[in-house]
Structure formats: C-alpha cells, structure tokens
C-alpha cells in the first residue's frame, strides 16, 4: 500500500470519528444548554465544537484536493435551489455564531432561484469561509448569493479588520505556506480548485479575497 492510500483510508476514518464527536457536542449543547453546565462550560463546549468542525473541514479539503489533482473527484453539477443552499450553509454555522453573539444573515437573489453546480464541494467551500469569518468578524456575517452576467457570485462578508495584505495577493497561497500566521492556505487553495472545476463554454470559475470599503473582508467564489 502506498502512502497516499494510507492517508486516504486514515482520513476517511478520522472523518467518521470527527462526525460522531461533532454530533455528540451539538446534542449536548442543544439538550442541556447552560442550565446544567453554567456559561463557562457551555462556552468551552462551543469552542470544542468549533475546532471539531474545523478539523472536519480540513479533512474534507485534504481529500478533495487529493482527488481533484488526480482527476479522481466525481464532479457532478446539479440544479441547486439557492435559498435552500443558503439555509443549509447558515444552519451549519449558526450554533457557533449564536454563542458568540454574532448576527448571521443571508441575501439570496430571488430572481435566480436555482443554479447548476457541484453541491458538495461548493458547500464545503462556503461553510469553511463562514467558519473563518466567525473567527475574525466583529458582529456580523452575511452570505450573499447573486446572479451576475459572469455567473453566480457567492460571497461571505464579515465586519472585522479585513484580510492582511499578503493574502490579497492573487498568487496566495500558491507561493507557499506562511509560517508566521500559521495559515496553511489549504482552504483557499481548495476553494480555487473547486472554482476551476466549474466551467461553462470558455468561462471558468474563480475565487477572490478583498477588503470592503466600509471595513471588513469578503471571500467570494464565482461559478459560471
């Protein structure tokens, strides 16, 4: 067995365990809440849940990148209802946003209704972007889905300090891992790979990081 197969099998197994951990934590928080733990313990549990979800996200991205790069990813665009997609993505981040007191909103272009894309990978990208936003925002996170002339634009906005300059460089994270911030750039790299899988005619998807004029950062992915 070669190393990548071992990694693949192990990742699969880890994902199952993390899935169970996540479910138990959500269960605990939902059923017992602060009444039986006290606010501190509830907060710690919430943090644990956040970290578990981050680990899950990373495992998904690792497997995703591995498969995409080898042409093994079963890319399967289908008609996705946008309102429902937004609701599902928000529901994944809501428990954490709630305990931190952030507001969580979505704005869906009512005219578009639905769009064709690979639901699973795009959902991973968006959810991971929202988890990142939870980490850096001040008070709110907004998920926007808009149909534009170039395609469907999915944006995650926060009102934090914005992205540091090196991340705004389009070459990031291809040029390597930044040891100082500890950011591997895996999430962004995965997002870019997912965007590139989506084509329509000669148009291809892309991702972007930008800082908003009114403050805060925006991650966006465009799906033609």
């Amino acid at each position: 067995m070669d190393f990548s197969t071992i990694v693949g099998v192990a990742t699969h197994d880890m994902k199952n365990s993390v899935g169970v951990i996540t479910a138990y934590l959500e269960d605990l928080l939902a059923q017992h809440a602060e009444a039986s733990f006290g606010p501190d313990a509830a907060n710690l549990l919430q943090q644990t849940l956040y970290e578990a979800q981050r680990v899950n996200g990373h495992l998904v991205q690792l497997m995703g990148v591995y498969k995409i790069e080898r042409g093994m990813y079963p890319f399967d665009p289908q008609e996705v209802d946008l309102a429902e997609f937004a609701a599902e993505a928000l529901s994944r981040v809501r428990p954490l946003a709630h305990v931190k007191g952030f507001s969580l909103e979505s704005e869906v272009d009512g005219l578009a209704g639905s769009w064709y894309f690979d639901r699973e990978t795009v959902a991973s990208v968006v959810i991971q972007a929202m988890f990142n936003a939870v980490r850096y925002t001040r008070s709110r996170i907004t998920l926007r889905l808009h149909a534009t002339a170039e395609g469907l634009l999915i944006a995650v906005d926060d009102d934090g300090l914005g992205f540091p300059g090196f991340m705004l460089d389009q070459a990031y994270p291809i040029q390597g891992i930044n040891a100082q911030t500890g950011s591997t750039g895996l999430g962004l790299y995965f997002a870019r790979q997912v965007a590139l899988l989506h084509r329509r005619g000669s148009a291809q998807g892309h991702t972007r990081l930008e800082n908003l004029p009114a403050g805060g950062g925006r991650f966006s992915i465009l799906l033609p």
Binding site: A23, A87, E88, S91, R92
Partner: peptide, 16 residues
C-alpha cells in the same frame, strides 16, 4: 447526505 450530518442539514433536506 454527506457525513457529518447536522440537524439543520437533515431538516432542510428531508423537508425539500
């Protein structure tokens, strides 16, 4: 339905 399954995902999917 991809694991991990959360209450929110299960709810919206089943409903739809």
């Amino acid at each position: 339905l991809l694991k991990p399954i959360t209450e929110g995902t299960l709810q919206t999917r089943l409903q739809r």
